[in-house]
Amino acid sequence: MNRTTYETTKKIARLVQNMTRFWSSSDGWAPIDASKLLSKSMLEWQSSLADCLEKWTGDLTQGERILAWANIGAIVEGQLKLFLAVYYEDYLNDIYAISDKRTRAIIEPDALMLEKLRVFFKSRIWMENEPWDAWLSLVQQKRNAIHAFKARNLGTTKELHDALETLLVFVRRINSQLPYPDGTYMELIECSHE
Rank of each mutant, 00 (worst) to 15 (best):
M1P: 11
T4C: 11
I12P: 03
I12A: 02
I12V: 15
I12K: 02
L15N: 03
V16P: 04
Q17L: 08
M19T: 06
T20R: 03
T20V: 14
F22K: 05
W23G: 00
S25N: 08
S25E: 06
S26Y: 04
S26W: 05
D27W: 07
A34R: 01
S35I: 00
L37P: 02
S39T: 11
K40L: 11
S41Y: 07
S41M: 09
S47V: 08
A50P: 14
C52A: 13
L53D: 07
L53S: 05
K55N: 15
T57W: 01
G58I: 06
T61M: 02
T61K: 08
E64I: 07
E64C: 06
R65L: 15
R65N: 03
R65M: 11
W69I: 08
A74Q: 14
V76W: 00
G78T: 12
G78E: 07
Q79Y: 01
K81N: 04
K81L: 05
L84F: 01
Y88T: 01
E89T: 13
D90L: 10
L92R: 05
N93T: 08
I95C: 03
D100F: 03
T103G: 04
T103E: 07
T103W: 04
A105W: 06
I106M: 04
I106T: 12
I107D: 08
D110W: 09
A111L: 12
M113D: 11
L114D: 07
E115K: 09
E115H: 10
F121Y: 07
S123K: 14
S123P: 01
I125S: 02
W126N: 05
W132Q: 01
W135T: 06
L136T: 09
S137D: 13
V139G: 02
V139T: 05
V139M: 03
K142G: 07
A145E: 08
F149C: 14
F149T: 15
T156F: 02
K158M: 02
K158D: 08
E159Q: 15
D162E: 13
A163F: 06
A163N: 10
L164W: 02
L164E: 13
T166D: 13
R173D: 06
P179Q: 09
P179D: 09
Y180N: 05
Y180T: 05
D182L: 14
Y185W: 11
Y185V: 00
Y185P: 00
E187P: 00
L188H: 13
E190D: 11
H193F: 14
H193M: 14
H193E: 15
